[in-house]
């Protein structure tokens, strides 16, 4: 674990915190390739903490429970039909699925989007 990189206008304003952040690991392990850091934008008392990240989009399952008891489940960050399997446990847990709508990301295979055409004429 390395020390955090930070800058502050007044060093005395830096709080006494025991924070361990893995910053620029390639400095400690030359075998790792340098990856561009992901700036999380966390500012605390004038100190800016810069943390390295993977750059991958986070997979999320969003459950919205309305005040009338209706539940809406949305998946984000998934491509292809795997989103249905990932959210299935919630649907089994909470009740009966009354409707479902698929978004364009559902039809994405890897980085390719599959276009579906409807036969309108003939």
């Amino acid at each position: 674990m390395g020390s955090a990189w930070f800058s502050a206008t007044n060093p005395r304003s830096i709080p006494r915190l025991s924070i361990r952040l893995k910053v620029f690991p390639e400095k400690f392990d030359p075998s790792l390739k340098r990856r561009p850091p992901v700036y999380l934008g966390k500012v605390f008392n004038g100190a800016v903490f810069r943390v390295q990240g993977s750059g991958l989009s986070m997979k999320q399952i969003i459950v919205e429970i309305l005040d009338d008891g209706e539940i809406r489940i949305e998946t984000k960050g998934f491509t292809g039909p795997v989103c249905l399997a990932e959210a299935q446990f919630l649907k089994d847990l909470l009740g009966k699925e009354t409707s479902q709508s698929l978004t364009p990301a559902y039809y994405q295979q890897g980085k390719q989007t599959v276009k579906k055409y409807l036969p309108l004429c003939g």
Binding site: G69, E70, I71, R72, I73, E74, T75, K76, F78, T79, G80, C83, L84, A87, L90, K91, L94, G95, K96, E97, T98, S99, Q100, S101, L102, T103, A105, Y106
Partner: peptide, 9 residues
């Protein structure tokens, strides 16, 4: 977004 489902509790 991949899909949106509505559930009855």
């Amino acid at each position: 977004m991949s899909h949106v489902s509505k559930i009855e509790i």
